[in-house]
Simulated assay, not measured.
Amino acid sequence: MELVSGKVTSKGQITIPKELREKLGLSEGDQLKFLIEDDEVRIEPVKKKLLSQAIGRITSKEEINLEKMREIAHEEASKHTLSEGLEHE
């Protein structure tokens, strides 16, 4: 077990040393979970799940139209991209 230390800022943010970020494959925006037991805290990265991994867990009484879901997602992404573009002008 390695001992690696970090620093807590006045805003409660934690600095994770570069060697630890690299070892865990962490990058900006990744989420962490804090597991607390007694007076100890364990920090673990939240595993990213692909939609393809989650599909088997989705249940519905109605048939799920994946093509319609893709179409809606594409429309929403287009709206978001357009609104982002207008904000930058």
Rank of each mutant, 00 (worst) to 15 (best):
I64R: 03
K61Y: 11
L20W: 01
I36Y: 07
H74I: 12
K48L: 06
K47H: 06
S5H: 05
L50N: 07
T81Q: 11
V46C: 08
S83V: 11
L24T: 01
S52W: 04
Q53T: 06
S5A: 07
Q13K: 11
I55K: 15
V41D: 03
H74E: 15
V41R: 02
T81V: 12
I43H: 03
E28W: 04
R21Y: 01
L20I: 07
R57V: 05
L24Q: 01
S10W: 01
K47E: 11
E37M: 12
L50W: 03
E84V: 12
E71T: 10
R21T: 09
E19D: 13
L26I: 05
M69C: 13
H80L: 15
P45L: 06
K61A: 12
E76G: 03
E75F: 09
E63F: 10
A73L: 13
G6F: 01
G12Q: 00
L82A: 12
L35F: 13
K48A: 07
Q13T: 05
L66C: 04
E75M: 09
V41L: 13
D38R: 13
S5D: 02
I43S: 03
K23E: 11
A73T: 10
L32S: 06
E71W: 07
K61H: 12
A77T: 06
A77Y: 09
K11E: 08
G29K: 07
E84Y: 10
L86D: 14
L26K: 02
V4M: 05
I14R: 00
I58E: 02
Q53S: 11
G25M: 04
I36F: 10
K23A: 11
L3Y: 07
M1H: 06
I16S: 00
S60R: 05
E28K: 11
I58H: 01
L26A: 03
E40K: 14
Q31I: 03
A77F: 09
H74M: 12
A77W: 06
I72P: 02
Q13D: 08
G85R: 13
K11S: 09
E37R: 15
G6H: 02
L26G: 00
M1T: 08
T81K: 13
E44R: 10
T9E: 02
I72E: 15
I55N: 03
Q31A: 09
I16L: 06
L32Q: 06
D38K: 15
E22P: 02
G85S: 14
E62S: 12
S78V: 12
I36Q: 11
K79D: 13
E63K: 14
V8Q: 00
L24H: 00
T15M: 08
P17E: 04
H80A: 15
S60C: 09
T81M: 11
I14W: 02
T15L: 12
V46M: 08
